[in-house]
């Protein structure tokens, strides 16, 4: 059996809302330590991988490792029907591995709403990329910045054009774009430390200058999720997709892998 409970408006609900513009269906792997979710956007530009550790929930139970496909958009629609203060339970029993049961319980426990959501096939949403994020050394540059700043950069640039060029070297981290109506260049002078301060831009890893061109539509999606957290970590390499990561509690994470634009 798999069962978790959370309060309405918890971080899981926030994340599911924020990934909706990219993801319809996701594959979820559950274990006693927590659950991971992988999803690929329909255009194959972004791969999303997240791990929610069990300790971020009010209660969490998973008797046996299991894997299920979930229609995220439908699930979010159901979760939106909950009321303030409700306790939300998500449950899958071994007897019925076709549905996921979602229950809302009102704070005074006088009202309970049960809903069943059918599980779907999401095997195509797996990608064997788990090794990427274990290879920090493969990224040419990794920096951290306040997620609100990251969102602001993406928004400011998207006024001018659809693409952003992110350049990183020892001295400067820049976000720039050039369009028909003009150009924008936002430069940050980074701190260099292993312990990034929450309010500053920090270069944590640097093996050489690197620049990547990315579609701002996808970057804005990453930024949307990141604003649920204080800081965002961004890894660049010419040989790997861009990585955007936020930490969920001690051991959890949400990572976006974004394919860059390339010159053909």
């Amino acid at each position: 059996m798999f069962e978790l409970t959370m309060a309405k408006g918890s971080i899981l609900q926030g994340v599911l809302e924020a990934i909706l513009d990219l993801v319809n269906v996701a594959n979820v792997d559950c274990s006693s330590k927590g659950f991971s979710l992988q999803a690929l956007d329909t255009e194959h530009v972004v791969f999303l991988s997240l791990f929610f550790p069990s300790e971020v929930f009010r209660s969490y139970r998973c008797d046996e490792d299991c894997s299920m496909g979930i229609a995220i958009a439908d699930m979010v629609d159901l979760l939106r029907a909950s009321n303030d203060g409700d306790i939300i339970t998500i449950k899958v029993t071994d007897q019925n591995f076709e549905d996921i049961t979602i229950t809302f319980e009102s704070p005074d426990k006088t009202k309970t709403t049960d809903m069943d959501l059918q599980l779907v096939d999401a095997r195509s949403h797996r990608l064997k990329i788990s090794e990427w994020h274990d290879m920090e050394s493969e990224y040419q540059a990794i920096f951290c910045m306040p997620s609100a700043q990251f969102m602001l950069n993406c928004k400011s640039l998207s006024v001018i054009d659809d693409d952003v060029v992110i350049r990183v070297n020892e001295e400067v981290i820049s976000f720039s774009t050039k369009g028909k109506s003009g150009c924008v260049n936002i430069s940050h002078v980074p701190n260099k430390t292993d312990n990034p301060e929450k309010a500053s831009v920090t270069l944590t890893h640097m093996r050489g200058p690197v620049s990547l061109t990315l579609n701002l539509r996808y970057m804005k999606s990453c930024a949307k999720v990141s604003t649920l957290f204080d800081q965002v970590k961004i890894g660049l390499s010419t040989k790997l997709p861009l990585m955007v990561e936020c930490k969920i509690a001690e051991k959890g994470y949400i990572r976006y892998f974004v394919a860059p634009k390339i010159t053909e």
Binding site: V46, L127, P241, V258, A259, I262, T263
Partner: peptide, 14 residues
């Protein structure tokens, strides 16, 4: 002239 890379192809071409 930049074109959007496909994530799977990008990964396979590493």
């Amino acid at each position: 002239n930049k074109h959007q890379a496909d994530l799977e192809k990008f990964y396979n071409n590493r």
